[in-house]
């Protein structure tokens, strides 16, 4: 479970997070929806303890990320934006490295790596160096890294960017499977179809604030619109950022 309480963060002169509060429950997929520059990435980085909030706090499974960051991080898997691949390593080496870094021993990291590579249908590229990978292959590698150690909470920053149809479907199935297994999945996106199709709970944010939250249907009902996209535009009060 990921909980964000009254987070405030100023970057330069911009109030990136403005008393942001929401909750992502276990066994549910929570979507963080917002236009470009809404503060989605800032929010996720704060949850990871990479950015320090000016006030407020973030909790992972009831562990404060600032007070006990090591234990909090062990409960997390991160799919970052940008991916942060090591171009000179192969996906197998890359994924196994992060598995061990998350506390697995060499043997079990090896096994977990093999199974996640199979799961993501990456065995054909598993032993090629990441340099020269397509966007989709990069995303898959990063995704494998995020889930290899089976963390209770998985955070994905714009996971569908650059994925082809097949990969998007794999990702979707994967997220649903993680949900089945009882994981807490939090992802940020500005792709409506993705959010509408996957999320149990949607948090709409703009200018660092939560403007609405609920299931996709609830949001549609609240705004009396047919689709989530229209509901979203009504909620944020403009159509900025949707072109991206």
């Amino acid at each position: 479970m990921i909980e964000v309480i009254e987070l405030e963060k100023k970057i330069g002169s911009v109030q990136a997070l403005d008393k942001l509060s929401f909750k992502a429950e276990d066994g549910k997929i929570t979507g963080l929806l917002g236009p470009n520059g809404a503060g989605k990435t800032t929010c996720l980085r704060t949850i990871f303890g990479l950015l320090q909030a000016d006030s407020g706090f973030a909790k992972i499974d009831d562990i404060d990320v600032v007070k006990d960051s090591m234990r909090a991080k062990q409960q997390l898997g991160l799919f970052p934006d940008p991916c942060g691949l090591y171009e000179r390593l192969t996906p197998r080496e890359y994924v196994q490295f992060f598995a061990e870094l998350s506390g697995m021993d060499n043997k079990s990291a090896q096994v977990a790596t093999q199974s996640v590579l199979e799961q993501l249908q990456m065995t054909d590229i598993a032993d090629r160096k990441c340099k020269g990978f397509s966007q989709g292959q990069r995303m898959k590698t990063a995704l494998a890294q995020a889930i290899v150690h089976q963390p209770t909470n998985i955070i994905l920053d714009e996971p569908t960017r650059g994925l082809d149809v097949m990969s998007t479907r794999i990702l979707r199935d994967l997220l649903l499977m993680l949900k089945e297994q009882g994981h807490c999945v939090l992802f940020s996106s500005h792709v409506m179809q993705e959010v509408a199709a996957l999320c149990d709970h949607v948090v709409v944010m703009t200018n660092g604030k939560v403007v609405a939250e609920g299931s996709p249907q609830a949001l549609c009902e609240q705004t009396q619109k047919e689709t989530l996209e229209e509901a979203f535009i009504t909620l944020i009060g403009s159509d900025e950022g949707l072109a991206a």
């Binding site: 990479l50 090591m70 062990q74 942060g84 691949l85 090591y86 171009e87």
Partner: peptide, 14 residues
């Protein structure tokens, strides 16, 4: 510069 530093620090390593 390759953005992997932030990812490293997101892991339970001091």
């Amino acid at each position: 510069e390759r953005n992997s530093l932030a990812l490293l620090l997101s892991h339970p390593i001091s």
